[in-house]
Amino acid sequence: MASSKVSLKLLIDTKGNKVLFAEAGKDFVDFLFNLLSLPVGTVIRLLTKKSMVGSLGNLYESVETLSETYLQPNQSKDAILKPKTPISASDLPLLLSADETMIGKKFYMCPSFHRNVADDPRAACPNCNCYMNTKIPYIALAKVASSDDEGGYVKGVVTNMVMDDLVVKPMSTISSIALLQKFSVKEVGALEERVVDLGMDEGLKLLKASLQSKTVLSSVFLGNMVAGTLWLHLGGNPVRKFWGGLWG
């Protein structure tokens, strides 16, 4: 079973209160890459409808409140609201694995065990027309232990650099120096190295921040808000108003 915590080493610009980049191992990069495989319905449910940006939360709620009467006989609301993730996802350090969408596939046959298989117990057997509601075990492909087979997406021998905006690239001394120049870091003493743990709470925050922000790591680990300045014209006079708050 994957660990419920993943360690991450951050390089922080204390003057700018910003994460320049993170030094990350295989577990964290696998977690980031696996976010791309999560179905939209799963993402909305994990983040809750009220915290979603835009109208997808409303769309999700529309399906929730829709009567089954209006659905096709071979469709269910769970197929939309609780879609299954890829089976391979069970091998990854998801940090979100407590969610029931990570459960493996289920297959069914008719009571007469004709040579037909369905993934929905309401399907009708083409041979006897009975419901195919007899559950049969799903056997995943057994993995042969190998030093070369680590599971996940990326190799564990490479240390990766994850930028504040989640750009991922193999880490090297040259690329680190180039980034310091890019960010115009002139005082090395202003840099702080900090090791943080990413658990389920941080994983959910990171998922949410990735949909809303270009400074994801700073938002999650430094509490930075996505902020800006809005000029309002009240009574003909411009009024400068602060706006922001990623988690508000």
Rank of each mutant, 00 (worst) to 15 (best):
N116H: 15
I139P: 02
D164A: 06
S176C: 15
R115C: 03
S147D: 10
V196E: 15
D149R: 09
G156I: 00
K169E: 15
A124Q: 05
G151K: 08
M163V: 07
S176D: 03
H114Q: 05
V157I: 06
G189Y: 10
Y138N: 10
V196Q: 10
S97E: 12
T173A: 14
D165E: 14
A123W: 02
D149W: 09
L92N: 10
L198P: 10
K105S: 13
A145S: 11
V158F: 10
H114C: 14
V188W: 06
S175P: 01
G199S: 12
S90T: 01
S90C: 06
C125P: 02
T159P: 01
L141T: 01
V195F: 10
S175Q: 12
G189R: 13
S184E: 14
S112I: 03
T101W: 04
S172C: 11
Y138E: 12
L92D: 05
E150H: 11
D99C: 05
D91V: 07
T159F: 06
D148I: 01
E192I: 05
E187R: 11
I177L: 11
K186D: 04
I177D: 04
L141D: 05
Y138T: 00
S97F: 09
S97L: 05
M109P: 00
I136M: 12
S112V: 00
I136E: 11
K155H: 09
D197S: 14
S147A: 15
L94Q: 13
A190E: 14
K106Y: 04
M163P: 01
P170K: 08
